[in-house]
Simulated scan of single mutants.
Amino acid sequence: MTYQTALLTLALTAFSAATGYAASLIHLPLPFMLGSLICSGTIAVFFAPRLPANYRFPMKIRTVFMVIIGVMIGTRVTADLLSSIPSMLLSFTMLTLFVFVAHGMNYMIFRRIGGYDRPTAFYSGTPGGLMESLALGEEAGADVAILTMQQFMRIIAVITMVPLGLSMWYGAPVGSASGQSLARAGADLHALPLVLLIGLGGMWIGTKIHLPAAQLTGPMLAAAIVTVSGAADLPLPQWLINLSQVVIGTSLGMRFAGLNGSLMIRAAWLTVLSVGGMLALGTLCALALTQLTDTPFDVLLISFAPGGVTEMGLVALSLHANPAIVTLHHIYRIILTVLEMSVMARFRPMNKP
């Protein structure tokens, strides 16, 4: 990394952190991630010509903070939660149906209404597997700029609409907007070396066995094993969780470089159709499952919301539900989505018309 790249990265992160803090003051959902994404995305869209040529946010820095988030979520997995997995089989079955129906619906929206070519429409419509969708879409010849924008807008829309919708339903903020956190009160940095060791080790193993989103799921599984076994305690302070969200949000926002206003407007209303349809479908699934299981409707709804694993975990916490239950559903959704599009890519290649 050059001195110029390091200085620019530091400046972008500082501006994004300030925007994230402002977002927290007005109680936006997932404020440090969403605020930083808005800040860096605005810079990428409107000031890209003033940035150094070919500047990219350093992925190694982003990876370290993704590892921290993964460990944080993994520490919420308990032995009691694992023993309850058989009781989730019905909701996992419904989630399987949700993934296939949602992907098919999204493909039709992006292909027929949006006018995207086949690979761009197919990989823009996946209800999960962000990085895998981008990688496979690029290999298939999709428009990477449009694909990136649609996938990020899906996540932004979900982490915004679901907490805001539930906040209006309950008449009070939920999730991170209510001050909920997955970090432990009073935690300091004494466990950080162990957190990084376990997290990076989990990421390495996850990458070797081809886990989807291995930067997140590998550390999450490794931390879960350590926590459930009682081998170590892995507390993390809130400010470090906030900083992790700022770095991740900043890196995501910088991917909007090169996009213009008309493309973003079209992507925005297509996102409203796509996410609105998926949330309606998820609501129907949640309503059906409330008749067949003892799981509350709101917990099921956030378990089916297609995006924002961390924010959905925070919403679950504000509803006095174990965020790891919600996270397990989202990890299953991501794994299933990656398997589905990988099989489709292998046996029915998406070629441009």
Rank of each mutant, 00 (worst) to 15 (best):
L243S: 13
I159V: 15
R333A: 06
I156S: 01
T9C: 04
L81P: 07
S303L: 02
A17N: 05
P219T: 01
M161K: 11
S178R: 03
S251L: 10
M161I: 15
A145K: 15
P29C: 06
L240A: 06
T227V: 13
V158A: 08
Y21P: 09
Y170S: 05
G141K: 10
E138D: 14
R266G: 11
L136H: 02
L289Q: 08
S124P: 09
L82S: 06
M94T: 11
V343E: 00
A187M: 09
G165P: 10
G308Q: 05
L243K: 12
V71E: 08
P86Q: 09
T9P: 03
I205F: 15
M350S: 08
L28C: 07
I334M: 12
G258M: 13
Y123C: 12
L289I: 11
G129I: 06
I302T: 03
L252G: 05
S176Q: 08
V144N: 08
I302V: 02
A183F: 00
A231I: 14
G104N: 08
A6N: 06
S244D: 11
V275N: 00
G199Y: 01
L166I: 03
A232G: 06
M66C: 05
L28K: 03
L12S: 08
A214P: 11
V343F: 12
G171M: 01
P52A: 01
G202S: 08
V144D: 06
L240N: 01
S178G: 05
F297Q: 04
T227S: 13
M344V: 13
